[in-house]
Design a protein around this nucleic acid. Structure first.
Lengths: 107, 107
DNA sequence: CTTCCTGCTATCAATAGAGTAGCGATGAGC
DNA sequence: GCTCATCGCTACTCTATTGATAGCAGGAAG
């Protein structure tokens, strides 16, 4: 049966990957990481960089990213990537390269 | 002014990257791509693989991913990654590696 | 003091997603 | 032909997430 064959072929998605995919499935989450790539940004600058995202959502994303230790808050400059966040940025750099090769009219 | 310095430092996010980030900010979008990594899956198998995601959302994601030519529908087997989708999978493989190094209790 | 900018919160409307039921098509077995 | 199971997918309702706007408290500067 085709169904059974497919199940046999399937490698399970790890819990950590499922979590990462859930995190990145939250709106603006990866965009925030991406915008922090060149250095720390404060709240309003980050908001502007994301195209005037609403502050309530931004605040939620920042808290989530901090919970995951992807970003950290620093006294006067706002938010910056943590070590782990820098590594995530490397992944996003790959995504950037990928996106450049897409048909740009599709939506 | 700190704000001005930050703006000068900032490299703009490309339109294609913004689009890619928007796409991946939709719930289950990347998960679907990930689940298709080992081969084609039909609708219900895909639904099950994503942890019984509701069919209405899955249908929307599938249409969106098809619009972006990341997946394609094939007559009897369901859905599979396109060439572009395979490349996106390579990026997700990096994300998988990244996620394995995270604290797994954070949420 | 006033004025500005800051991070952030409160509130409410709009949208997206989850959950469930079920329809029409297709294929297998009889 | 029939039944029966499975398929892709849609319709519907309800809940959760996000968007938009206003504005507050705190700090710095004048």
């Amino acid at each position: 049966m085709a169904q059974r064959i497919q199940n046999l072929r399937r490698a399970q998605t790890s819990a950590s990957m499922a979590q990462a995919l859930t995190l990145s499935g939250r709106r603006w989450a990866l965009r925030v990481v991406w915008e922090l790539r060149v250095g720390p940004l404060n709240f309003r600058a980050l908001q502007a960089a994301c195209g005037d995202i609403s502050p309530s959502v931004l605040q939620r994303r920042l808290n989530e990213l901090r919970d995951h230790q992807i970003i950290e808050k620093i006294p006067r400059l706002g938010y910056r990537l943590s070590t782990s966040g820098e590594k995530l940025f490397q992944v996003l750099a790959q995504l950037d390269k990928w996106s450049a090769g897409l048909p740009d009219d599709a939506q």
